[in-house]
């Protein structure tokens, strides 16, 4: 059994077999990422008759509830085009909470893979973020249609604001999902805690109430409110879509949009990137024990 021709020269370095570059490894494996994202998207509506239409029904119903309860019954809708004001917030809040919630559960949910296959585990929270980002699409379509109907026209600064808002939430959401997905392997309590935590998010952003209210009530402490990256992202989206939908955009900006919103926005992005770096460090420390804890 010592046939000749069993010689094989492997042109690769001798290296540790486990992936070590964390999020950078994820960037290098875009095909796998695409498969994971596609799988999760199709899994969400598996066995459902209306399928993808739910992605439209869901935000529409929320929009209606907020408009009806707060704008109509309670009469809180003191700002012009209140429904658009709320919807701008909803998009951001949804994107964030979906990323955070699904991302936190992502590693445990994929334990069959994590237990046996060598792959960068950061893949799973990142995929959750991309799935949530994908679902921003239908909401954006609804928002755009409603805004156009209100006489909104796109402006470059507004689009920049929107892109900045998405970037903030994408990075912040990934950072939190990364940290909590690892923690959730050790104690499943984290997933439950995150669900409760995300319930509060919508009240900490100027969605149901306008930012002016915060400004009036808290005076100089309103600045602290703007240290919340999610609040900044909501305001940026409102700057992008709601402002242009109101009857007098200039007056709306002057009254409801903080002066240095973009400064806060860029600050929020930088802060989120720093948090992502910390999250990667935490993840790397916990990661070694993940496969054995899942069996």
């Amino acid at each position: 059994m010592t046939e000749a021709g069993r010689h094989r020269v492997v042109d690769a370095p001798l290296a540790p077999p486990a992936p070590t570059a964390g999020l950078l490894d994820v960037l290098g494996r875009r095909y796998l990422l695409k498969l994971l994202v596609r799988r999760e998207i199709s899994a969400r509506y598996q066995g459902s008759f209306l399928g993808f239409i739910w992605s439209y029904i869901n935000p529409l119903s929320q929009l209606f509830i907020f408009w009806f309860v707060f704008g109509y019954i309670i009469g809180r809708g003191t700002v012009d085009k209140y429904a658009v004001h709320v919807f701008c917030g909803l998009i951001v809040v949804h994107f964030f909470t979906e990323t955070f919630n699904a991302g936190t559960r992502s590693i445990v949910r994929n334990k069959a893979l994590v237990r046996k296959m060598a792959m960068p585990k950061e893949m799973f929270p990142v995929a959750s973020m991309l799935v949530s980002l994908y679902h921003v699409g239908p909401q954006l379509v609804i928002l755009t249609v409603v805004c156009l109907f209100c006489g909104w026209t796109p402006d470059p600064l507004g689009m920049l604001a929107f892109a900045l808002a998405l970037a903030i939430i994408a990075v912040l959401g990934t950072a939190l999902a990364l940290m909590f997905s690892a923690a959730n392997v050790f104690f499943r309590d984290f997933a439950s805690a995150v669900t409760i935590l995300t319930n509060f998010v919508r009240f900490g952003v100027p969605m149901i109430y306008p930012y002016t209210l915060v400004d009036q009530r808290f005076g100089r402490f309103a600045e602290l409110y703007l240290f919340n990256p999610i609040a900044d992202a909501v305001l940026l989206v409102q700057r992008a879509f709601w402002v242009g939908s109101t009857d007098d955009p200039d007056a709306t900006i002057a009254e409801h949009i903080p002066d240095d919103l973009f400064v806060y926005g860029v600050g929020a992005l930088v802060g989120s990137v720093v948090l992502l770096g910390i999250a990667q460090l935490v993840f790397t420390r916990l990661e070694n024990k993940i496969p054995e804890r899942l069996s």
Binding site: V10, P13, P17
Partner: peptide, 17 residues
Amino acid sequence: NGVMKPDSGTVLTRGRI
């Protein structure tokens, strides 16, 4: 195959697994 990392010591491999 890199699913786990050793607590101490080194594992090195060459090529695809």
